[in-house]
């Protein structure tokens, strides 16, 4: 069985807007996939159905053997513990330090402090923020905050890392560094990565598999390196 499998997924919002129309796609374990498309193309909805922020109206979404659409609200945390999520707006807790923000993901699972410490430190080391442990998010630059967010997403070693426009708020140089970190996670840890973006430079340069979503339809599925900018986005 594939790691991620969407079958005939439709999503119609309450206001009648169709965000996804009959999307079927499968992704292997360890793949690195870009999801591109214009604003309001359904790209965000696609990403959100993967971590059960949105339920599909019809069709099935399977992630790591879990039928995501069938998970009840009270049990969503079981899925969230298996995946890491990185956001455009970082979503860090401003009143917690860098260390506490990353440790938080393990604490709420009920892990022992002794086990938490090395895991948090190794995650922060991977993103290159070992010396900012005691800083608060407000004292960090955008790129650094995004690294904290990545560290939090990978600290429990998820099989899947979902990135929703992680470089949307960052300048090109910082974006490159962030992409290096994400690529490193894919290569070293074998984590499957699904990343929504509209940064053409990144997509062109990295030559990964690309899913193009237009008006809620999967308009193109380009294998590694076969995607060219002029075809869309």
């Amino acid at each position: 069985m594939k790691f991620i499998e969407l079958k005939n997924v439709n999503k119609v919002y309450k206001n009648g807007v169709t965000a996804l129309a009959d999307v079927s796609v499968s992704i292997e374990k360890g793949e690195f996939v870009f999801v591109i498309g214009l604003t309001a193309s359904g790209k965000s909805t696609f990403i959100k159905t993967l971590y059960r922020e949105e339920k599909p109206t019809s069709g099935t979404v399977m992630v790591g053997g879990l039928n995501v659409g069938k998970i009840r609200n009270g049990k969503v945390y079981k899925l969230r513990r298996k995946i890491g999520i990185v956001f455009q707006d970082f979503k860090l807790l401003p009143k917690l330090t860098v260390y506490e923000n990353v440790a938080f993901a393990l604490e709420c699972v009920g892990m022992k402090d002794k086990e938490i410490r090395p895991k948090v430190m190794s995650a922060l080391e991977r993103v290159g923020l070992k010396d900012k442990v005691r800083s608060f998010p407000g004292e960090l630059s955008g790129g650094e905050q995004q690294r904290v967010c990545i560290a939090r997403a990978i600290v429990n070693r998820p099989k899947l890392l979902i990135c929703d426009e992680p470089t949307g708020n960052l300048d090109p140089d910082t974006s490159k560094e962030i992409m290096k970190v994400i690529e490193g996670i894919n290569k070293d840890l074998g984590t499957t990565i699904i990343m929504a973006t509209h940064d053409r430079d990144i997509v062109n340069r990295m030559k990964k598999r690309v899913l193009l979503i237009e008006h809620g339809v999967l308009a193109g599925d380009y294998a590694k390196g076969s995607y060219k900018t002029h075809e869309g986005s």
């Binding site: 945390y77 999520i85 979503k91 860090l92 938080f104 993901a105």
Partner: peptide, 12 residues
Amino acid sequence: AIEIMRLVGASN
């Protein structure tokens, strides 16, 4: 903060 807790997998 509550939203983030949910996202990182905190149970209700």
